[in-house]
Amino acid sequence: MLKFKLLLWVFAQLLKKQIKKNPVCARYIEGKDLTFQIRTNAGTGRYFVIRGGAIRSFAGLTADPQFTLSFQDAAKGFEILSAKDSQAAFLRGLGSKDLVISGDFLEVMWFQGLTGFLQPSKVICAYDRTAF
């Protein structure tokens, strides 16, 4: 459970860093007013507030999120959220019911765009056209 909690905290820190250093990411959240949470079925989790061009996160749960990602347990949450093939892992989690998404699916789609800013981009070497 500790790894899951730490992962959620680190997730918020990484988003804050992207917002500060990446103007495209900063523009992406500009004007957004969103509260969402990531939790386990047992009630462990963290909620995130995007407002005023910034993101804040808080331990625990909120009463009225616009959407919730609920994992069967902390181990499954950590496994899915930290997977290298994140999109496929989410789909597998949804199919197996290890992950249930509730709330506003338009906001979930927007959130997926936000998480894209955390994906490492490939750098193409102009000389030999290889990615590294």
Rank of each mutant, 00 (worst) to 15 (best):
T35N: 02
Q37A: 14
I38S: 09
I38F: 06
I38R: 08
R39Q: 14
T40S: 06
T40L: 03
T40G: 05
A42H: 10
A42W: 08
G43I: 06
G43M: 05
G45N: 02
G45Y: 06
G45S: 04
G45W: 04
R46V: 12
R46L: 11
Y47Q: 12
Y47P: 13
F48W: 10
F48E: 14
R51K: 14
G52T: 10
G52Y: 13
G53E: 01
G53P: 10
G53S: 04
I55Q: 09
I55T: 05
I55N: 00
R56M: 11
R56E: 14
S57T: 04
S57M: 06
S57A: 13
S57N: 08
A59I: 03
A59H: 09
G60P: 04
L61C: 08
L61D: 08
A63F: 14
A63H: 13
D64P: 02
P65M: 01
P65F: 03
Q66N: 13
F67Q: 07
F67S: 06
F67H: 09
T68Y: 08
T68P: 01
T68D: 06
L69V: 02
F71K: 06
Q72H: 12
Q72V: 09
D73Y: 09
A74H: 06
A75I: 04
K76T: 02
K76A: 12
K76W: 11
K76H: 12
G77K: 00
G77T: 02
F78P: 00
E79R: 09
I80H: 00
I80K: 07
I80S: 04
L81A: 03
L81D: 01
S82K: 08
S82C: 10
S82H: 02
S82F: 01
S82G: 11
A83T: 07
A83P: 07
A83V: 02
K84A: 14
K84C: 08
D85K: 11
D85Q: 10
S86P: 03
S86E: 10
Q87N: 12
Q87A: 15
A88N: 09
A89Q: 02
F90G: 05
F90L: 07
L91K: 14
L91D: 12
R92T: 11
R92P: 00
L94G: 13
L94I: 11
G95Y: 13
G95W: 11
S96E: 15
S96H: 07
K97R: 15
D98V: 07
D98I: 00
L99W: 00
L99K: 01
L99Q: 04
L99H: 05
V100Q: 08
V100Y: 05
V100A: 03
V100I: 12
V100K: 14
I101M: 12
S102W: 08
S102Y: 03
G103D: 03
D104G: 11
D104M: 05
L106F: 06
L106C: 10
L106G: 10
V108R: 02
M109H: 14
W110V: 00
W110Q: 04
W110H: 10
F111M: 07
F111N: 10
Q112M: 14
G113A: 13
G113H: 11
G113M: 07
L114P: 09
L114I: 00
T115S: 05
G116P: 15
G116V: 12
F117M: 04
F117C: 04
F117T: 05
L118I: 05
L118G: 11
L118F: 02
